[in-house]
């Protein structure tokens, strides 16, 4: 049934090249209290240069799906492909942006941004880094340590860290979840602008319905225990989308539509925020 819904959604949209293909991704975690069924044959295409939001309540397997796409942990069955390549380990084409920025507290901002280059044993691309720092208004903060920066600045630094290595896919795991509402709006605008400028393929995990609609070309709604794709919504609102759009009747209608779908579905809707 899930597959059917997805196929309908795919065929309704314009034909686009598939960047990442997830096929029957299933994942069990083996814990002391038994196996946890985190993903149940999830099939999903991430299209070239699209902004895909994966929306779902906490514990629905969004992060598990994203980590599998990043090649950070293996699936129990099924496969994830980037082009023709099956993802079994981290791929240089894919960069991840984590919750709470995930900067290393013992490194200053410049050193944090150079980390990926260090790990790849490459000289840091100074031109690129400076351009990006300027783009996110962090020039002049290179010597600051993460604890000296605000949450928004930390997350901006982590965006620079990921973009500096020129990936073609960005995987974002509730990156703005810990920020206050104002900073969050700013960050959503920034990531929209960056996406419009770079046209990277972005898979963005969130539990906020309005954040998903605000950012996405398509919203894939997941249900929990086990994690499944329940529905995919096309969001055809023209860009650039201003923050105020979230108070427009059309936008609110979309929010309520997704919300009611989640409430009528079998999956528990608890933990889903409208904001």
């Amino acid at each position: 049934m899930n597959l059917k819904v997805e196929k309908k959604a795919v065929s309704a949209a314009k034909p686009c090249a598939v960047k990442m293909a997830i096929r029957d991704a299933t994942k069990y975690y083996h814990t002391r209290s038994g196996a946890v069924h985190a993903l149940d044959s999830v099939s999903l295409d991430v299209r070239e240069s699209e902004f895909l939001c994966i929306l779902g309540p906490s514990g629905c397997g969004k992060t598990t799906l994203l980590w599998s796409m990043a090649g950070l942990h293996p699936l129990s069955s099924g496969e994830i492909r980037l082009g023709d390549e099956v993802i079994t380990k981290p791929n240089p084409e894919i960069a991840m942006i984590f919750q709470d920025a995930n900067l290393l507290p013992w490194r200053n901002l410049a050193k944090n941004i150079e980390l990926p280059f260090e790990l790849k044993r490459q000289p840091p691309d100074r031109k690129m880094i400076n351009k990006l720092l300027d783009r996110v208004s962090l020039t002049g903060f290179e010597n600051k340590f993460p604890r000296e920066l605000s949450g928004g600045m930390q997350q901006r630094a982590s965006i620079v860290r990921s973009l500096a290595v020129s990936p073609s896919v960005l995987l974002m795991d509730e990156p703005f979840g810990a920020l206050d509402a104002f900073t969050r709006d700013e960050m959503n605008l920034l990531i929209q602008e960056i996406w419009m400028e770079t046209r990277k393929t972005i898979a963005f995990v969130t539990h906020s319905i309005s954040e998903a609609i605000f950012l996405a070309d398509r919203v894939a709604v997941m249900s929990a225990r086990p994690g499944r794709i329940a529905e995919i919504y096309d969001i055809d609102i023209p860009r650039p989308r201003p923050v105020e759009i979230q108070t427009q009747p059309d936008f609110i209608k979309r929010v309520l539509q997704i919300k009611s779908r989640i409430e009528h579905g079998k999956g528990p809707a608890t933990g889903l925020a409208i904001t």
């Binding site: 981290p90 894919i94 991840m96 984590f98 919750q99 709470d100 995930n102 980390l115 790990l119």
Partner: peptide, 11 residues
Amino acid sequence: AKIALARSFGA
């Protein structure tokens, strides 16, 4: 998360 971060960049 820090280990995953390093791993995601191919560490």
